[in-house]
């Protein structure tokens, strides 16, 4: 072993801001998440959005699919016609969000994070941003790219393309907020990322199955509020000009309610982490 004094010459070195430190957590999180299965799921999601938009906006094909009509905003909503696209998003969220906090708790590296000059909120924002940015790649980027394709290659007017782009951004942000907060919350409940992943997928899909069952038994669409995926679907369909099964404002309230409560509980749970123990 070599013992030689390190060069301690950092007295004059300026320190970066706290927001920069948060960004460091985010970029490290992104680096670890943009691999393997996650990339496959992102590409799959992009293909779903891309292919459907191309089909409905390419001259010839669009005319055939639309029964001769010109493309409308609702044609861009095809990914949100059913929960399949959201189930894929759930899979991606489970994969990228499971280890967000649970991984740090499992390795106990969370103690090192919190002993650094950042706050608990900084830590959570950094972790959440890493998860959220991957979801942005899934929800926003393909939609926006597809709208640009529709404008430059398809037979879509600039106004419609811009409106569709705005709709993708708006809906995408709502999706990102709910999936991110839910993932962080469930990840904070356990020290095993695999349990957290199973919980993320299990909770969302179980709620969907439960809502469908209750709806079929009671014949009441109100049951759909139980499922966050149905709530998201209602919001998305409403933004894209499709009439949803449930009231979109009510659904948006449920989405934001879940997001706010899970974010708060996650914060309180991480506050309880013992840095020195």
């Amino acid at each position: 072993m070599t013992i030689s004094a390190p060069r301690y010459e950092l007295v004059g070195t300026s320190r970066e801001s706290r927001s920069r430190r948060v960004w460091v957590i985010t970029t490290e999180g992104l680096r670890r998440r943009l691999t393997g299965l996650n990339l496959v799921l992102i590409v799959l999601g992009a293909l779903i959005v891309g292919v459907e938009v191309v089909l409905f906006t390419t001259p010839g094909i669009a005319g055939f699919l639309n029964g001769g009509g010109s493309p409308q905003l609702s044609n861009f909503a095809t990914p949100y016609n059913s929960v399949n696209y959201l189930i894929l998003a759930t899979l991606l969220t489970a994969s990228i969000g499971a280890g967000a906090i649970a991984g740090d708790v499992a390795t106990r590296s969370i103690a090192l994070y919190l002993s650094r000059p950042i706050t608990t909120l900084d830590y959570l924002v950094g972790k959440g941003a890493a998860v959220g940015l991957v979801l942005v790649l899934f929800f926003l980027v393909p939609g926006v790219a597809a709208c640009l394709f529709a404008y430059f290659v398809g037979n879509v007017s600039g106004g419609l393309a811009l409106t569709a782009m705005g709709a993708f951004v708006l809906v995408g942000l709502v999706m990102v907020v709910l999936f991110t907060t839910l993932a962080l919350f469930l990840s904070s409940l356990t020290r095993r990322p695999i349990f957290a992943g199973a919980a993320i997928f299990g909770v969302l899909v179980s709620a969907e199955v439960l809502a469908a069952l209750v709806r079929s038994v009671t014949q009441s669409v109100q049951a759909l509020y139980v499922s966050p995926l149905e709530d998201l679907l209602a919001v998305a369909q409403s933004v894209f000009g499709v009439t949803p099964a449930i009231d979109p404002l009510g659904a948006l309230g449920v989405v934001f309610g879940i997001s706010a409560v899970t974010a708060l509980v996650t914060y309180l749970r991480v506050l309880e982490v013992e840095v020195v123990g």
Partner: peptide, 29 residues
């Protein structure tokens, strides 16, 4: 600086990557 008693390292990172990461979290460029 704080060195915990328990294991607290991120196993999938390299030694240099981890230590530099912790340095950056402390505000070093």
């Amino acid at each position: 600086g704080y060195m915990p008693e328990h294991d607290c390292l991120i196993p999938e990172m390299t030694g240099i990557g981890f230590v530099a990461y912790m340095g950056r979290l402390s505000g070093l460029p």
